[in-house]
Write a protein that binds this DNA or RNA. Structure first.
Lengths: 187, 187
DNA sequence: CAATTCTGTTTTGAAACGATACTATTTTTT
DNA sequence: AAAAAATAGTATCGTTTCAAAACAGAATTG
């Protein structure tokens, strides 16, 4: 990938970032809160724990513990104990949290929705973006926080549904698009 | 622009972000320090002030003042008083700061350099990215923090050099690619 | 020259953050 | 089955971020 393209991508990422920051500030939240809520909206049910959030964001669990406590107190997050493992608490988006993410999405979309990509290029653009994402996931050490779709544990079955070979649970198509902590790239 | 594309873009931006965070942490810096140094490496000589940094990052000047003080103390930034205006201090990257940005760039590049975009698509991809950037700048309220290249004050002269109609100073080609606080989109 | 605007600092209190130590639960080893 | 190790999360400490507000100096405006 060429330098000019990466540069443009970085600038775009920065603009997206500033947009998210503006939205977080308006809600009286810090960026890290936005990042936490955003992750929780994208991860699957095996990856919605404090530890996973900390790993994904590159923060210590102590730090995340505090921020999550605050988010829970403010009503953005609900902690639900795991049925099988007494150590684990699942972090679920409470209504206020879902509303926040939804609003953030609407805002960002409004920045981009009127951007016109010529129809001839539109499909190529989407294809390239997803191709790059796929390749990065493949490259990024094979382990952790990829989409189930590209995970070696994920198997499509005869009837079209999916099965995770690790948890032996059935997955819907939507499930396979979420971020999983146990992700291992399907070499 | 379609939803799937924006989604992929957001994911990519997130991955870039995590990469930057990792690099900042390894250098013992916070994300906000990375953002400040990154901005200073991209802005022009009219936009390297504390106030401009604060506006660009959406933080208060008090906050930025403290973080800049720390960066200066650690040797990443040098404060240079303005020749004409006694209130203004220019924030310049000291050698350590340039080294940090350079390293960060190398790291990020290494994540992307082996990503192969088929040559046929490569040019299209670059074109689309820059087109999107241009359109966002046009849309984003016309004012502030765009590249001189798209600014109405920037005029190309007969000999090929550039002139800023606001400051009446000559600009090099490189200058016109930097971020300027006074940017106004050339309708 | 007085009023206002602009740039930057300082202070205060809430919260982020890393480091460390800690408890509790599960898994692995012996 | 008991001991050890690994895992998930909390609590506490000191430093730093962050917003808000008060502040000081320099430039501009009237």
């Amino acid at each position: 990938m060429e330098y000019a393209q990466l540069n443009a991508l970085e600038r775009l990422a920065g603009l997206l970032r500033n947009d998210q920051r503006r939205h977080a500030t308006l809600s009286g939240l810090q960026m890290v809160h936005h990042d936490i809520l955003d992750y929780l909206s994208r991860c699957n049910r095996y990856s919605d724990t404090l530890q996973a959030v900390a790993e994904y964001l590159g923060l210590t669990k102590g730090t995340v513990s505090q921020s999550v406590a605050l988010l829970a107190e403010k009503g953005y997050i609900e902690k639900k104990p795991d049925a099988a493992d007494g150590r684990i608490q699942h972090l679920c988006l409470a209504p206020a949290g879902q509303e926040y993410i939804w609003q953030s999405d609407v805002d960002t979309r409004s920045l981009f929705e009127e951007i016109s990509v010529s129809p001839a290029y539109a499909r190529v653009f989407g294809t390239i973006l997803n191709d790059i994402l796929w390749q990065i996931q493949a490259r990024q050490g094979m382990k952790g926080f990829g989409m189930c779709r590209s995970c070696r544990h994920n198997k499509q079955q005869e009837d079209g549904t999916f099965l995770c070979g690790l948890t032996l649970e059935a997955l819907t198509l939507e499930d396979t698009l979420k971020i999983c902590r146990e992700h291992e790239f399907a070499g």
